[in-house]
Computed example of a mutant assay.
Amino acid sequence: MTIVSTAPRVFMSYSHDDDEHRDWVLQLASRLRGNGVDVCLDRWDVTLGGNLAHFMERAADGIYRVIAVVSETYSRKCNDRSGGAGVEAQMLSARLYNELDTDAVIPIIRNNPNNPPELPAFLSGRLWQDFRDTATQEPAYERLLRDIHGVAVDAAPPIGPNPFEGRTEIQARLAIRDSPGRWHSPAFQGDVEFVFSQNSGRYKLGSGTSQFTLWIDAYGHDAVRAYRDPAGIANVAVIHRVRERTELLADVSQFETSSRTAIPHCGDALILHNGDGFWALLYIDKVYRREALNRESVVEFRYEIQPNRTPDFSGFAFPDSGGS
């Protein structure tokens, strides 16, 4: 009995810029195969004396998605229709023209120093993934792998009810004001000003499996107390004076996580670990009170969620103005 593979199929389209570039593509293709992707690569699938033109025709085959490794040389050859990249570009252009809304070709950027990068004409307007910076290649790789396997990186939240339906004007106004989306930052990183005297001190970060529910209350005049009680939060911890100890950000799992609470002051970092294995780091910039209709308790922080589930935040970008 013939066993048919259900692994997604990917064709690697790239230019042979130099040995280092060829080896980088080989490493990427090998890693993808190790993560459940059936990769078609010339170094594996074309033998001496084999038909190279026949191999390149696979770029037009609908059973494959195509990863286009867009270097400066690749863009030039595609536009000039020269070399193997030019042949593949011609076939891919026809494929994209016939299926205008397709995501059949995934451009990834490598050896392409321009900002924005120079893409071949046939890929103009297509969303690309940046693989130029070694510091961000891990999250870039996970995003690529998730896309190939059809596992969303940023999960769309469910559609809520119409706040105006079946409500009075005042009820609708209250429903809008108290909507959970008001206290939610779905991105992997950002700057937040949270009035934690609202919404019972709860604020959501991230989305899907990478979501965290931050639950805090006041602790003195320049600190907050964070809890691991919300569903999905496995651990909380604190790094004191984190700007002076940035070498410790390479592995934040080393900090004490056995307590129910963690108390970061201004200038400290709060570590969150959720039940799906994701890690988040929050730098506490300011904690203060301000007068409004009622006295408000406010915390300002910068946060980052590590999308590849590692506890490595060595590249964390601190805000320009640190806490006291």
Rank of each mutant, 00 (worst) to 15 (best):
N112S: 05
L100P: 10
I63V: 10
V66F: 08
A59M: 06
K77T: 00
F131K: 07
L119V: 06
G83L: 14
E99L: 12
R65W: 04
L123E: 01
L145F: 07
G50A: 05
R126V: 10
P120Q: 11
P161D: 14
L48G: 02
F164P: 04
E88A: 04
I108C: 12
L127D: 13
R81I: 01
R177Y: 07
C78T: 01
T102V: 02
L145C: 11
R58L: 09
G83K: 07
T134S: 14
P107K: 06
N115F: 13
D154N: 00
V70K: 04
F122K: 06
L123N: 07
A135D: 10
D147A: 13
K77I: 00
T168L: 02
P163K: 01
R126L: 10
G83H: 09
N114D: 14
A135E: 11
G84C: 06
L145M: 06
G49A: 05
D130S: 09
W128C: 10
I106N: 12
E88Y: 02
P116M: 04
D61A: 11
L123G: 03
A140W: 01
Y74P: 01
K77H: 07
A68I: 03
T102E: 13
E99D: 15
T168W: 04
S82W: 10
D45W: 11
G50R: 06
A59K: 06
R143C: 09
D133P: 03
R132S: 15
I148G: 01
R146Y: 10
A85Q: 04
L52E: 09
L100E: 09
N79A: 02
P157S: 01
E88R: 04
H149C: 13
W44R: 12
R173A: 15
A94F: 12
P161I: 05
L119A: 02
S124M: 10
I108V: 13
Y64H: 13
E165V: 07
A68V: 01
E169T: 07
R173C: 11
G49N: 00
G150S: 12
E142V: 10
I170T: 11
G125S: 15
D103Q: 14
R177W: 05
E72D: 10
N111R: 15
A59W: 09
A60I: 05
E169Y: 06
A104C: 09
E169K: 08
P158T: 00
L127E: 15
E88D: 02
N98H: 13
F122T: 02
Q129G: 05
T73E: 15
G86A: 06
P113D: 15
N51W: 09
P113A: 11
W128Q: 07
S93C: 00
G50Q: 00
C78P: 02
H149V: 13
R132K: 07
I148Y: 07
Y74M: 00
I67W: 00
V151L: 15
E72K: 10
I148F: 05
I148C: 07
D45G: 01
V151M: 11
L52F: 15
P117F: 09
I108T: 08
M56G: 06
D133M: 03
A140S: 08
G84N: 04
I106P: 09
N114R: 14
A121T: 14
L52M: 14
N79C: 03
L174T: 09
I109Q: 02
V66W: 12
